[in-house]
């Protein structure tokens, strides 16, 4: 029963993704634009670009995700679909969690595809591609799941900025570890410990956030 429910959810999400009139491109465009703006703000010499690259990639990545996070629940909350889904689901917690994961995959894959472009724009060696890919995937999941929880908590607020202001301070550890991965892998050092740290954080967030999401929705639907 739950399985068929999840299958329907996947199909529905995919259909919405392919029907979104190019909306999935907006985060990608933002990602590239932030990198461009950072670069034109300094003298783009190779060593300076390389020094900035870890921070620029991470900030651009997280800001782009913010754009996608804004639509996590809000649209369905406003047209009443969210409450009906919770009301009729066999297991609302699992349903919410699956939706978070599906949307995360659909949002980060286009961004990760742009990563080689970002790396070459910032004149970093291509050897950092794999480690930074892993770090961005793990780190973005922490950010994404916490963001989904916080946007469920702030559903009743019509200003989209509030969730970002609550979420961004919590991104400090992700940016610290994540940009360190890019920096160290560019110098040819081992980064497995740092990546594992990010994976650990994403497991921690996975175990906490569904409850917060659910509580937030119950509260805002009352």
């Amino acid at each position: 029963m739950l399985l068929s429910e999840l299958k329907t959810l996947y199909k529905l999400e995919w259909r919405q993704f392919s029907r979104s009139q190019g909306q999935w491109l907006f985060p990608v465009m933002l990602f590239i634009l932030v990198i461009v703006l950072f670069t034109v703000g300094i003298d783009p010499e190779a060593h300076r670009l390389q020094q900035m690259a870890p921070a620029v990639i991470w900030c651009a990545f997280l800001l782009s995700l913010l754009l996608a996070l804004d639509h996590m629940w809000r649209d369905d909350y406003q047209n009443g679909v969210l409450e009906q889904m919770l009301l009729h689901s066999e297991s609302p917690l699992q349903l919410l969690l699956h939706r978070v994961v599906v949307r995360w995959v659909l949002s980060i894959v286009p961004l990760l595809l742009c990563l080689p472009l970002a790396i070459s724009m910032l004149q970093m060696p291509m050897t950092i591609f794999m480690p930074s890919l892993l770090a961005l995937a793990a780190g973005s999941f922490v950010f994404w799941s916490l963001g989904s929880a916080l946007s469920a908590l702030t559903l009743n607020d019509r200003r989209p900025a509030l969730m970002s202001l609550l979420l961004l301070p919590m991104a400090v550890p992700i940016v610290i570890f994540g940009s360190r991965v890019i920096k160290q892998s560019a110098m040819g050092e081992s980064v497995s410990g740092l990546v594992l740290m990010l994976v650990g954080l994403s497991i921690l967030s996975l175990s906490i956030t569904p409850w917060i999401m659910f509580a937030g929705m119950r509260l805002n639907l009352d």
Binding site: Q16, Q21, N79, G80, V81
Partner: peptide, 13 residues
């Protein structure tokens, strides 16, 4: 079965 006063539809489907 609860039908709210919202129409509970997704516009671009």
């Amino acid at each position: 079965h609860y039908l709210s006063h919202q129409q509970t539809l997704i516009p671009h489907l």
